[in-house]
Nucleic acid binder design. Sequence first.
DNA 1: TTTTTTATGTAACATTTGTTACCGATCAGG
DNA 2: CCTGATCGGTAACAAATGTTACATAAAAAA
Lengths: 211, 211
Amino acid sequence: MDESANFAFQFEPALIQEIEEFGELRSFKDGELVMDYGKYIRMMPLVVKGTLKVLKKDDNGNEILLYYLSSSETCSMAYSCCLEEKKSEVKAIAEGDLQIIAIPHNKLDEWLCKYPSWKNYIMRSFNERFSEMLKSIESIAFHKLDDRLIAYLKERKRLSGSSVIKASHYQIADELATSRVVISRLLKILENNGKILLYRNEIKLLQDFDS
Amino acid sequence: MDESANFAFQFEPALIQEIEEFGELRSFKDGELVMDYGKYIRMMPLVVKGTLKVLKKDDNGNEILLYYLSSSETCSMAYSCCLEEKKSEVKAIAEGDLQIIAIPHNKLDEWLCKYPSWKNYIMRSFNERFSEMLKSIESIAFHKLDDRLIAYLKERKRLSGSSVIKASHYQIADELATSRVVISRLLKILENNGKILLYRNEIKLLQDFDS
DNA sequence: TTTTTTATGTAACATTTGTTACCGATCAGG
DNA sequence: CCTGATCGGTAACAAATGTTACATAAAAAA
């Protein structure tokens, strides 16, 4: 299983061997469920290829986007769930085709002390997730919806590497916690300003988009 | 230094000894700065008594409330800063009189492997901070300002143990990322509904407040 | 005391966002 | 082909929040 090569640059050889020995390579198709609410999590996913979308549901049943994970990133929420053998508080969905290495929960703890590079990796993950959530709070608290929408589109572009974004207005509205009509309105304004082109289930970002 | 007694229930005796040996007890008065942006953090604070308010500034200079820490809690942001010897991304202010134990940064790492109870404590901290930030996102994204204001007042009551909250409308507006006028308006409505009484720099929550 | 600063109350208005309703276009399945 | 489902466009309106301006009261400073 040499897909772990992505991680090699930061892990000790011995750790890479263990990952290859105990980690299980799994593939998911677009939209497939990787984790779900209430289920016990017995593994932590390392993303090898593709994107993993992590969501959380609140008391009122609203789903909120936590973060996207892309190559060589991992899910800190899953990590803490594993350690305490708790049920999952989050849902994770494959966004496009996805490959992960599933690390069994009993190894997580063991490696933490055994391999400094693993500890650093985990800590850095926590930190990155933290920072993203901060950005998210900042965005919601201080920015208008139009700015947030633009930021969202940029992020999607960054993740997919393509300036064509496949999504319905409804999906976007959902992830930004607003309504479809509002998103349609704002997108139309962006189109009129020559920033994007709108098609069914597709948004094309133009060169002028960044300015 | 037997103030560490608060933590005793969860730490091994040997760890408590080390905390007493290497931890430094520090006191702060209301409003004093415990951490500030851009400074190197060489210690992690464990709150012994009082409340520590942790803030972050965004690119536009807006300050946003991250979380309050009360007795026996610690600051995960500081933790990760320490590990990577980074400059602080957060500011921390004493809210009322405050006592902390400052753990030197070189011990943090060492104890992580040496004492399982320390590792669990740290992990649980990360998790709790994470959950609070989630709650915060949820609150901003899905709740109206009036609900958020009520939640804010309840939280202040919980932290201080008193139903008299010392704060100006301006401070509250700041922490909820809105304007003073808006807060004054909403507070006045609450007062008219018999939920609270308003004084200068003081809000008294009435019995009827919770309903 | 007088003066200055700070905190609060309130009105009027602007802007942003949410909601409802209805339209036609496009797509998938029979 | 027809039919139903989904998607997007738009208008009209409602509600929430932000902004500006100004007044008064309390506290602090001079």
